[in-house]
Amino acid sequence: MSAVPISWYLTLSAVIFALGVAGFLFRHNIITVFMSIELMLNAVNLSFVTFSYQLKQVNGHLFTFFVMVVAAAEAAVGLAIILTVFKNRSTLNIDDIDSMKN
């Protein structure tokens, strides 16, 4: 057997996505939560590229490209926000950043 079923790639993507969701839900550090989002985006990228392979079209690659660009922009702004939050509250724990809550 020399070929990999396409469902394996998609399952891998699903597993990584689920792990990203788990990190997003269970972690308390903002930076780790942010990294979990990146993990989910990566999982989605993998399925885009896999679909692109299946349909023999380049479009999936383009979507991946745009996701990357947006992720880069998001990382720049998000990390700037994290820096500001840390300067103002000197904590990275999401439970402590609750001034909007009542």
Partner: peptide
């Protein structure tokens, strides 16, 4: 994934060179 993509649909290296 398992329902929509049967095992027979496979990926092999070099099968798509449009990237």
């Amino acid at each position: 994934v398992d329902r929509l993509f049967p095992r027979s649909v496979t990926v092999h290296f070099g099968g798509f060179s449009g990237g």
